[in-house]
């Protein structure tokens, strides 16, 4: 059915993808710690999830395993993509609930600041 998929960007080593993933992940992590707006904190979490997705996909395509027979096994290539699909599903559910919680807090206290939400501190 149709033309076969064309190979693209063959001369880029795996490390470059990983470097981008790591950079994005650390940016997201720093954002989670530094920012005080819960919506932006959420966005940073999404950033981290996406960097993990990128890493999964890069590993799936290059599959740099030393286990004999694993590297050329189609199952190894697919596992990374499956993980990405599940991460997307979890991220969607998380955003729906998380934004609902933020809206509920906003309605209750009329302010949203992660540092002021200390009612459960005890």
């Amino acid at each position: 059915m149709g033309a076969p998929a064309q190979p693209v960007l063959q001369s880029v080593p795996l490390g470059w993808y990983l470097a981008l993933g790591l950079f994005t992940f650390i940016t997201g992590a720093v954002g989670v710690v530094v920012r005080r707006n819960p919506v932006v904190v959420f966005m940073c979490i999404e950033l981290m999830l996406n960097s993990v997705n990128l890493t999964f996909l890069a590993f799936a395509r290059y599959s740099p395993t030393v286990v004999p027979g694993m590297a050329n096994d189609p199952q190894t290539w697919m596992t990374g993509q499956m993980m990405v699909i599940f991460v997307m599903a979890v991220a969607a559910a998380e955003v729906a609930v998380g934004l609902g919680i933020i809206m509920a807090i906003f309605r209750l206290r009329n302010e949203v600041d992660v540092d002021d939400m200390s009612a459960l501190r005890g």
Partner: peptide, 16 residues
């Protein structure tokens, strides 16, 4: 990442 910079052999099928 430094060790992974050497990995540039694509093992997956193009239609994966």
């Amino acid at each position: 990442i430094l060790p992974m910079l050497k990995v540039d052999q694509i093992r997956a099928d193009n239609a994966y």
